[in-house]
Simulated scan of single mutants.
Amino acid sequence: MADQKQEIKELIYIVEDHEVIREGVRQYLELSGYAVRGFANLKSAREAFAAQVPSLLIQDVMLPDGDGFAFVKQLKEKTDCPVIFMTARTEESDRILGFELGADDYISKPFSPKELVLRVQAVLRRYRNGSYEPSDGLLYVGDHWMRFDEQDHRLEVDDNLVILT
């Protein structure tokens, strides 16, 4: 068997109820080399997060089953997943609220797909380079999410328990 190193693509979740926008962004990011999963509502996004934390979340604010701001606020209590808000809400107060809730970037609709990809690259580069302060033991190292629970002496890498001596 040949020794081949398969490149693992960074996973991006998009929560956007407008199918044309969601699919367009998904396709553009996939062409840029990312693995992408799109969700039309918060319920399916919550289920996906319970199974796997992505490298980045692109989040709409106004969704049929809830508020994207509230979703990100809850998410940031559990994980340090980077977030880009992508929304039609353009008021300064909305942008400020997004950043106060922990967003790493905020892009207003309509937007340039190329600009969105560049913003995604910039956010992921900052996280890969460690220029952020992790919370609750969750770290993004190399291509992996790692969580160390100091109290229980447990290490999880990509949600898989690693046995420590």
Score class of each variant (00 low, 15 high):
38 G>V: 11
31 L>W: 05
42 L>C: 07
43 K>T: 11
41 N>F: 02
36 V>C: 05
40 A>E: 14
18 H>I: 10
12 I>A: 09
16 E>H: 08
15 V>K: 03
8 I>L: 06
27 Q>E: 14
25 V>I: 15
40 A>H: 12
23 E>R: 00
42 L>W: 06
35 A>D: 15
45 A>F: 07
13 Y>P: 01
8 I>P: 00
42 L>D: 02
32 S>V: 03
42 L>G: 11
33 G>D: 06
28 Y>R: 07
35 A>M: 06
23 E>A: 03
39 F>A: 03
17 D>F: 10
11 L>C: 09
25 V>F: 13
28 Y>M: 05
46 R>F: 06
16 E>A: 04
19 E>R: 08
33 G>P: 11
36 V>Y: 04
47 E>I: 00
30 E>R: 08
41 N>Q: 12
7 E>C: 03
25 V>R: 01
30 E>V: 08
10 E>T: 05
16 E>N: 06
28 Y>P: 00
47 E>R: 11
25 V>K: 05
30 E>Q: 15
44 S>T: 15
13 Y>F: 15
22 R>I: 04
41 N>T: 14
36 V>Q: 03
32 S>G: 13
21 I>W: 12
16 E>Y: 12
12 I>T: 06
41 N>D: 15
9 K>H: 07
43 K>N: 13
24 G>K: 06
23 E>L: 13
22 R>W: 11
48 A>L: 02
47 E>H: 10
14 I>H: 02
28 Y>A: 08
38 G>H: 09
15 V>I: 15
47 E>C: 01
22 R>P: 02
22 R>M: 13
21 I>E: 13
35 A>H: 06
31 L>T: 01
44 S>F: 08
29 L>E: 07
42 L>K: 09
18 H>C: 02
24 G>N: 10
11 L>K: 15
35 A>C: 05
6 Q>N: 11
34 Y>P: 08
41 N>A: 06
23 E>W: 10
9 K>F: 02
19 E>G: 00
12 I>H: 00
12 I>S: 09
20 V>C: 03
23 E>H: 05
48 A>T: 01
31 L>V: 01
